[in-house]
């Protein structure tokens, strides 16, 4: 059943068209990945879903709600959470304060915020050790954990993840993606934007490939991994290898 649906979405920055009519469906319980080169429009699409950018035209449906005219904080209240590219933790706030802000919509229910923190600390025990530390003093990997944990604090139905592997060592990337799968098993639907197509296609059930603002390809991850165009452009496999 479709949970999040984009219909003929166009987005422009001034006169520059960034997204030129994309249709995209995320079903309840899935991990879907959005692949593409720099500037293809992946981040722009996520920012439009979370209400940071306005559409030129098109619709974004979440269950029975239409999101395209809604302010960002309302979208969070409905159950969509966007973990932005580059982590964007609040550096001069403590780890715990960052998490509490993630649960801003539950700010009058301290029991619920407490439960949320416990859930995050279970996923990322390292954050619990550092709860009183300023977020700006954490390592890159820890900041990514905090960014994801902070996103989970709003108890979202859909998590939008933008480049969670960015700038992390390979071992940490594995760890983060293992956690992403765990979060998905707990019932959170995930829309994942990634440059690292190899790992994204391994965890996602379906994928869309964006090229200069349009969807060039889409389908099951398994099929796309075998598609020579994808292998050549995104998996770094030579043509000969693709044919063999």
């Amino acid at each position: 059943m479709s949970l999040l649906e984009l219909g003929d979405v166009h987005i422009a920055y001034g006169n520059v068209k960034a997204v030129k009519g994309i249709d995209l469906v995320v079903n309840d319980g899935e991990i879907v990945t959005l692949l593409g080169a720099n500037g293809a429009g992946k981040t722009t699409t996520l920012r439009a879903i979370s209400g940071l950018l306005r559409l030129q035209s098109g619709v974004i449906r979440f269950g029975e709600h239409e999101l395209q005219a809604m302010p960002a904080h309302k979208i969070v209240e409905l159950g969509i959470c966007h973990v932005p590219e580059g982590r964007r933790v609040f550096g001069t706030l403590t780890v715990e304060e960052n998490l509490n802000l993630g649960a801003y919509k539950y700010r009058n229910d301290s029991g619920r915020v407490q439960l949320g923190r416990e859930r995050v600390y279970q996923l990322f025990p390292r954050l619990e050790e550092r709860q009183r530390q300023l977020a700006g003093t954490l390592s890159g990997g820890e900041q990514q954990m905090l960014a994801i944990g902070r996103g989970l604090m709003s108890d979202p139905r859909v998590l939008l993840l933008d480049e969670p592997s960015l700038g992390l060592a390979p071992k940490l990337v594995q760890e983060i993606f293992r956690t992403i799968c765990e979060i998905n098993r707990q019932g959170v639907t995930i829309l994942l934007v990634e440059q690292n197509a190899r790992i994204a296609l391994r965890v996602a059930e379906r994928a869309y490939v964006l090229e200069t603002g349009r969807i060039a390809l889409s389908g099951e991850s398994l099929e796309l991994r075998r598609d020579p165009r994808v292998q050549q452009a995104y998996l770094g496999v030579k043509e000969a290898a693709g044919l063999s």
Binding site: S50, G51, L52, P71, A72, H73, V76, E77, C81, H82, V83, P84, R88, F90, G91, T92, L93, L101, G102, Y104, K105, R150, S154
Partner: peptide, 13 residues
């Protein structure tokens, strides 16, 4: 610190 990220927390800026 950051208006956009504050919005993503559900804060009405």
């Amino acid at each position: 610190i950051d208006h956009d990220t504050a919005r993503l927390m559900g804060i009405d800026v």
